[in-house]
Design a protein around this nucleic acid. Sequence first.
DNA 1: TCCCATAAGGTACGGATAGTACCGTACATC
DNA 2: GATGTACGGTACTATCCGTACCTTATGGGA
Lengths: 201, 201
Amino acid sequence: MRTVATGRRRRGAELEEAILRAAAEELAASGYHAMTMDKVAKRAGTNKNAIYRRWPQRAALGIAAYKRLAGARTPMPDTGSLRGDALELLRQTNATWSSPRGAILRDLLAAAADEPDLLELLREQAGASVMNAAWLTLLSRAVARGEAPPEAVHPRVAALPMMLLRGEYAVRGVPAVPDEVLADIVDEVLLPLVRGRGRIR
Amino acid sequence: MRTVATGRRRRGAELEEAILRAAAEELAASGYHAMTMDKVAKRAGTNKNAIYRRWPQRAALGIAAYKRLAGARTPMPDTGSLRGDALELLRQTNATWSSPRGAILRDLLAAAADEPDLLELLREQAGASVMNAAWLTLLSRAVARGEAPPEAVHPRVAALPMMLLRGEYAVRGVPAVPDEVLADIVDEVLLPLVRGRGRIR
DNA sequence: TCCCATAAGGTACGGATAGTACCGTACATC
DNA sequence: GATGTACGGTACTATCCGTACCTTATGGGA
């Protein structure tokens, strides 16, 4: 016994859009672990074939769906001081990572860890390079204000705060990192390093 | 039809030992994802009941088995300079993390991420605190040699290199981090920070 | 020496889910 | 109107976690 499809049959981009929307909704509703291929297919009003034809694995669909969940980028902070900017950017990231979206991101990261293609895709879609650029901009502005020596604009310095925050999550687990720790990262590591780079060597 | 067990029946500690050994062998052979409860039971010559009576979840068994896989601790480096010690310790960790054991560790970390108990257990058994102590010792010795100001002996400074290395793995994925990056972490971040802490503020 | 609670062995099963196969059918295109 | 491609529907394989249930050996106490 088989139900006959009466309505119009979606194809191509339209169907793809419906699948992505459904996957994003599943992600938002219960996270990546609950984003079942069957459930996505059902919610999208299609079947798994149509999905697997586009994304060969569950993780690939998850990453694609995450992109639209991530949505609009957060605004670039501009508080007038390096310390204020850095703290603000750390707080924004901390808020994201401690939210349900952060949990999804971590699950996706774990799922993609073994496959370089997926990892690259995820890094792209999660806006890692955007974030990196933001930190470089932030440092450049500090240099322009005379707050920091030109040597401070360095990729490894720019990546430092995010890496430390990530490390805090790895050590602590789920809950949000306390604000004092964020301040510590800025005051005890980032600022001394930025200032030190101009004076030594 | 049922096979009758003819031999002696193992109990308690002896059986537990056999299970742990089997689990560790499975881990070593094909990693955590392939460490099936059925396979462990079969290899240990027992059944899943005996396992679940001791470890309520697969992840718990995985963590327990990892401990014996990790085995002997690596020796504390002592090259005579902070730079040399730091680089050596980073290299040791890099070697571990890029080995199959590192992949197992990452998988376990991902599996335990949602459960604080397991996360704590893993951190214990993976020797995180030992590593932290090693870095503090390393800094203390540098202070004793007059290479660094006393303020350098600080938990956040001590945790810094490992966090940056971990971050590199998150960004790059599987393969080992190149030695130049390790040197960069030491020369561009750790040493400037250590020296800077004594002079500023 | 006997008895019995406990833990082990054996096996089967429930439930979930990734991914595949197959076939009929609508739709776009020519 | 013919045709190839992609979609819908469905069933199926395979895997694996965790549980249930019964039988049986073992060791300690009465």
